Amino acid sequence: MQLRPRDYSGDDVRLLTASGLGILRGERVLFDAVSLEVAPGEAVVLRGANGAGKTTLLRVLAGLTRAETGEVSRTAPHHWVGHREGLKPHETPRAHLDLWARAWGAGADVDAILNEMGLSRPADVAARYLSAGQRRRTALARVLLDKRPVWLLDEPFTALDAEGRTRVLDMVAEHRQGGGAVVAAVHGEVGFIASREITL
């Protein structure tokens, strides 16, 4: 899962930059004047109470939601994993990953990824029968299908047991060591050393 450092190296490289972001929800300012820069190897943690705008900020960074003010500059491809897993009830982990691998034209070894995520046994079980943790692992496994430098993760540890959490922490560590970066909304203990935290 190694990225190519030569593509995203250098002291002044920024994989993602946002400046002056602001979002309104009706008459309420959800957040205002939020700026951040993300360089290779960094992990930025978003904090805040429920409803503070962490998910919305991640969606703005991913290009899924438009901010009222500010701008976002993306100089590298990204993965987005929201708090909803995106699995259809009849879909198995293997079918889900096969589908995304074909959609992205990625030549990933799906069996190896299922094994890495601890999903070999339930690989062919429909999502409606999977535990919340297994569905979460399946959603997170998508980032391993295609090498993209930036991971935008919304509550990545939700529903995971200790083993699942360890697997995700290992993924994040390897990704950062390979020159990748992470922006994650997290409740509670992070489990990795963050480059910085932003509280909304």
Score class of each variant (00 low, 15 high):
2 Q>N: 10
2 Q>P: 00
4 R>S: 11
5 P>Y: 04
11 D>M: 09
12 D>L: 05
12 D>S: 11
14 R>E: 15
14 R>N: 12
15 L>Q: 10
19 S>L: 13
20 G>K: 05
20 G>T: 00
26 G>E: 11
27 E>G: 05
28 R>T: 11
30 L>P: 05
30 L>G: 07
32 D>Q: 15
32 D>H: 07
34 V>K: 05
35 S>V: 02
38 V>G: 00
40 P>Q: 08
42 E>G: 01
43 A>G: 02
45 V>R: 07
46 L>T: 01
47 R>P: 02
48 G>P: 07
48 G>N: 10
49 A>D: 15
50 N>M: 08
50 N>C: 05
54 K>M: 02
55 T>F: 10
58 L>H: 05
58 L>M: 08
60 V>E: 07
61 L>T: 01
62 A>I: 04
67 A>Y: 03
67 A>T: 04
69 T>Y: 01
71 E>D: 13
72 V>S: 02
73 S>H: 11
74 R>L: 12
75 T>W: 05
75 T>I: 00
78 H>W: 04
80 W>H: 14
81 V>C: 12
83 H>G: 06
85 E>H: 14
88 K>D: 07
91 E>M: 14
93 P>A: 11
95 A>H: 06
97 L>C: 04
97 L>Y: 06
100 W>A: 00
104 W>L: 13
106 A>E: 10
109 D>A: 03
112 A>K: 11
115 N>E: 15
118 G>K: 11
120 S>L: 14
121 R>P: 00
122 P>D: 06
123 A>P: 14
124 D>P: 09
126 A>I: 08
128 R>T: 07
128 R>S: 14
130 L>M: 10
133 G>P: 08
134 Q>L: 06
137 R>K: 15
137 R>P: 04
138 T>K: 01
138 T>N: 04
145 L>N: 06
149 P>D: 10
149 P>Y: 07
151 W>V: 09
151 W>E: 09
152 L>G: 13
154 D>K: 00
156 P>L: 08
160 L>V: 06
162 A>H: 09
165 R>W: 03
167 R>K: 08
168 V>F: 15
168 V>Y: 12
176 R>V: 02
179 G>W: 10
180 G>L: 06
180 G>W: 04
182 V>K: 01
185 A>H: 01
186 V>E: 00
188 G>W: 12
190 V>Y: 09
190 V>M: 11
193 I>G: 00
195 S>D: 09
197 E>T: 15
198 I>K: 02
